[in-house]
Design a protein around this nucleic acid. Structure first.
Lengths: 212, 212
DNA sequence: ACGCCTCTGTGACAAAAGTCACTGTGACAG
DNA sequence: CTGTCACAGTGACTTTTGTCACAGAGGCGT
C-alpha cells in the first residue's frame, strides 16, 4: 500500500506530520469490500476507525432488526462512536457498513488515548469529530421527530446526493429499511416525486434532477 | 453562597482540588428559578454550563415551535452541547430549561479550553460527558424511530421517574408537547395506562405505581 | 426458450395518530 | 357565590402509514 502516506496527507492534512508518521506505524490498515460491515451492534471496540477512502454508512439497529440511517462517513472522517466506546471498551450501539469499497485505519485504543495529550492536533480532531457527529445526529432526530415520511424521504435523498451524486444506486427496499418504513409506501412516495419531476425512477437506481 | 465549595465537592468529586478551586474563581454562579430558560435555540454560547443543584431539561425545538425532550441534567452533569458549541462559539441547536430551581456555574470558553490540557480530570470529565449525552440521545432517537406512541409515553414516564420520583407534576398538555404529540391522544393513552393500573391520574399530577 | 428470482407498481384494507367539537370539573379571583 | 379559565375526558372523523395480496417486468442461469 505505497499510497497510504499520500491518502493520509490528502484527507488528514490538519494532523501534524509526526502524528501521521506514528499513525502509519501504530495502526492496521484494512481494505473493505462493498457491503462489508466494519462495526456491528453489540461488538466490543478496541480501536478507533479512520476512513481513508470510500464511503461508510453508520446506522442504528434495534432488537428486531429494524434499522435506520444515522449519517455517512467520508474520507477524512472518523467514527465518533468508535472513539467514545473505545474510551471505555464498551459495546458499540451502532453499526457501520461500507457503501463502496473503502480503506480504513484501525488505531488501538491506548494509542489514541496517549495522543490526546501528546498531539494538540489529535485532540482538536477528536473534539471536532464529536461535534460534527452530534450535530448530524440531531438533524436525523429532527427529521424523525418532526417531519412526515415524504419530507424525510427528500432529506434522505439529499443526504445521499451529497456523498454519491445524482445517480443513486438504491432499491426501494433499501430505502424503506434505512428510513424504517415499508417498501410499498416508499414506492408510492417515489412515484409522486417522479410525477413532480424531481427524479426519474429506474430499476435499481434513481436519477435526481431538480432537488433543492 | 458559602456552600458552593461543598456542592462542588459533593457533585464533582472526580475533579482534582486545584481544578475545583480554579472553577470557583473563574466561573460565575447563577441561581435559576423554576421554568427559567438557560440556553435558548439560536443563542451564541460563550460558556460551559455545570449543574450544581436542581434539575434541567434539555430539548430541541424546530422552526414552528414544536419541541421534544432530549434528556435531563442532574447535579454533577454538564451540558455537552454547551461545551461543543462553545468550542467554536457557534449557535446552540438546543434549549435548556430549569425544571426545579437550580444553581449553575458558567465557565468562560477559553478557560475550559486551557483546562483540557492542564487538568487530566477535566479532560476525562469532558470525554465522559460527551459519551453519556451521545448515548442518551441515541436512546431518544431509538424511541422516536422504532417505538409507537404508547411505548414512548412509558419511556418518557420512566425517565421522569428517574429524576423526579413517583409523583410527577405534569399536565397532559406538557407531556404532549415534550413528545411532540397532541393532548387528546396523550389523554387517551394515559387513561389506558390507568386502567392497566400502572398509574393514577389527578389534576396536574400523575402518580406512578407498578412501572417496570 | 424456460423457469426463477428480485424489483417494482397498485388496489384494498387495517391500524395509528392527529384533529375537531363539545362537555365536565376543579381552582381561584373578585 | 359565581364567572372565568386551565385542565381533562370522549366521540366522530380524517390523514398518514403500514399490511396484504397480487401482477407485471427485467435479468440471469441452464
Amino acid at each position: 500500500m505505497s499510497h497510504l502516506p499520500a491518502l493520509l496527507q490528502q484527507h488528514f492534512p490538519h494532523l501534524e506530520p509526526a502524528l501521521r508518521d506514528e499513525l502509519l506505524q501504530k495502526s492496521t490498515h484494512r481494505q473493505l469490500q462493498e457491503g462489508e460491515v466494519v462495526v456491528r451492534t453489540g461488538q466490543f471496540l478496541r480501536s478507533s476507525v479512520l476512513l481513508l477512502s470510500g464511503l461508510l454508512k453508520v446506522y442504528r439497529e434495534d432488537e428486531e432488526g429494524n434499522e435506520f440511517l444515522m449519517y455517512f462517513l467520508e474520507p477524512g472522517d472518523a467514527c465518533a462512536l468508535s472513539m467514545l466506546c473505545a474510551a471505555r471498551e464498551e459495546q458499540s450501539a451502532i453499526s457501520a457498513q461500507a457503501v463502496t469499497p473503502a480503506q480504513v485505519l484501525l488505531v488501538p485504543l491506548p494509542v489514541t488515548e496517549r495522543w490526546l495529550t501528546q498531539y494538540p492536533s489529535w485532540h482538536a480532531f477528536v473534539i471536532g469529530t464529536y461535534r460534527q457527529r452530534f450535530e448530524e445526529l440531531l438533524q436525523t432526530l429532527d427529521a424523525v421527530a418532526f417531519k412526515s415520511l415524504d419530507e424525510r424521504l427528500l432529506f434522505y435523498l439529499k443526504r445521499h446526493r451529497q456523498v454519491q451524486g445524482d445517480h443513486l444506486k438504491l432499491s426501494h427496499q433499501q430505502i424503506a429499511q434505512e428510513l424504517n418504513s415499508s417498501r410499498e409506501v416508499i414506492s408510492r412516495l417515489l412515484k409522486k416525486l417522479e410525477q413532480r419531476g424531481v427524479l426519474t425512477l429506474h430499476r435499481n437506481f434513481i436519477e435526481l434532477h431538480g432537488l433543492a
